[in-house]
């Protein structure tokens, strides 16, 4: 199937069900002793059958209450989780960003920047070029060769955000990233969005802040119980979400 170049993501009939076994044992011994007594499993339909298309350069919002499947959907669309059914085509490199993801706590800030930059498809020279920018933006001068495990959670999150912003990928999945850092850093994060940074990038934004969604998203999807109830006009989606919260 040839994909339309103006599309970043095409998903047809994708779904994801988790089978959560009630006993946590997951060993050969346990399996042998319980051959005729299979573990009881709970089915959780995290994402129900759905289809959607994301155009190149679009900024799409996903809103919905906790547990409605937003994060799972984003993991499916970014290729981190395999889908159970359907067809998914991702056109470009992806990056999924939420709190504390994407860095090794055993490595220093410097090493993490190089590793993450490299994983996101940059060459060492390209990382060299943006290295100082990343450190400056994250306000981490003086901690370049400190291991992440000694960072405060805010520092680590700022570093993650800064790498994402400066290294980037063709398709960015941003899961609640405006909750990162103190007020000053949040303002800075928002300023990045207001600059030309998102131009040319495809962004999928998850947020509970309606202001953010209203401001940046061309289209918004409202999710409920693992399904997209509505996708389209941002104001309409916010209205539905607000009603759902009543």
């Amino acid at each position: 199937m040839i994909m339309d170049e103006s599309l970043s993501i095409v998903a047809k009939n994708i779904s994801k069900t988790f089978h959560i076994s009630e006993d946590s044992h997951n060993t050969v011994k346990h399996r042998l002793f319980n051959l005729f007594n299979p573990p009881r499993r709970k089915k959780v339909e995290a994402v129900k059958m759905m289809s959607l298309e994301v155009k190149r350069g679009e900024c799409i919002g996903f809103i919905g209450r906790n547990g409605c499947g937003k994060s799972t959907l984003v993991k499916l669309l970014s290729g981190v989780y395999p889908t159970d059914t359907g067809y998914l085509k991702i056109n470009g490199s992806t990056m999924l960003m939420n709190l504390g993801v994407g860095m090794s706590h055993e490595l220093t800030a410097r090493e993490n920047i190089y590793v993450s930059g490299s994983v996101l498809g940059l060459k060492i020279k390209q990382v060299d070029a943006i290295f100082d920018k990343i450190i400056d933006f994250a306000e981490l001068d003086g901690f370049v060769d400190t291991k992440i495990k000694f960072f405060s959670s805010g520092m680590a999150a700022r570093l993650g955000f800064s790498i994402a912003v400066n290294a980037g990928a063709d398709i960015m999945f941003l899961d609640e990233i405006f909750a990162v850092g103190d007020m000053k850093f949040q303002e800075k994060a928002i300023r990045v969005f207001e600059s030309s940074w998102i131009e040319g990038k495809t962004v999928i934004l998850i947020s509970h802040s309606m202001d953010v969604i209203r401001k940046y998203c061309n289209r918004t999807a409202f999710m409920k119980n693992g399904a997209i109830e509505y996708m389209g006009d941002t104001e309409k989606a916010i209205e539905l979400y607000t009603a759902d919260n009543q």
Binding site: S78, G79, V80, T94, L96, G102, M103, V115
Partner: peptide, 9 residues
């Protein structure tokens, strides 16, 4: 895990 849980590496 930190290498592959946020990208399609």
């Amino acid at each position: 895990k930190y290498l592959y849980e946020y990208s399609n590496m």
